[in-house]
Computed example of a mutant assay.
Amino acid sequence: MKDLLPSAIKNKEKRSEVHAKLKHQKKLEKKKKAKVREAAEKQALELGEEPPARPVPRTIENTRELDETVCKPDDEELFAGNDADEFSCILKEERTPKVLITTSRFHSSRGPAFIDELISVIPNAHYHKRGTYDLKKIVEYANNKDFTSIIVVHTNRREPVIGLPSGPTAHFKLSRLVLRKDIKNHGNPTNHQPELVFNNFTTRLGHRIGRLIQSLFPQDPNFRGRRVVTFHNQRDFIFFRHHRYIFETKESKEPQPKGEGKKEAKTQEKVITRLQECGPHFTLKLISLQHGTFDTKGAEYEWTHKPEMDTSRRRFFL
Rank of each mutant, 00 (worst) to 15 (best):
V153I: 13
N143V: 03
F114A: 05
D134T: 03
N144I: 14
N144V: 08
H126P: 14
L135Y: 09
P160D: 06
K136D: 11
F114Q: 13
V99Q: 00
H107N: 11
L91K: 14
T102I: 06
D146T: 02
I119L: 15
G111F: 01
P97Y: 04
F147T: 09
V139D: 11
E159Y: 14
I115P: 03
F147G: 11
I119A: 05
T155Y: 00
G131H: 03
I90V: 14
F114V: 10
T96L: 03
S108D: 13
H107P: 04
I122A: 05
E94K: 05
L118T: 05
C89R: 03
Y127F: 15
I138L: 03
L91I: 04
H126I: 11
S120E: 08
G111E: 00
C89D: 11
P160H: 02
L91S: 00
I150E: 11
Y133W: 13
R157P: 09
G111D: 14
V153C: 13
Y127E: 13
S108I: 08
T132F: 08
Y127M: 11
G131W: 03
Y141Q: 15
S108L: 06
A125H: 04
F147E: 11
E93R: 03
I162V: 10
E117V: 12
S109F: 12
E86P: 07
I138H: 02
E140N: 04
I162D: 07
P123E: 10
L100C: 07
R95S: 15
Y141L: 02
G111V: 02
A142I: 07
P97N: 11
L100N: 02
E117M: 04
D116H: 14
R157Q: 15
E159I: 04
K137N: 12
E94A: 00
L135V: 12
R110H: 09
K136H: 13
N156H: 11
D146E: 04
P112C: 04
I138N: 01
L91R: 01
T103L: 07
A142N: 04
L91F: 04
H128F: 14
E159V: 05
K92W: 03
F87P: 01
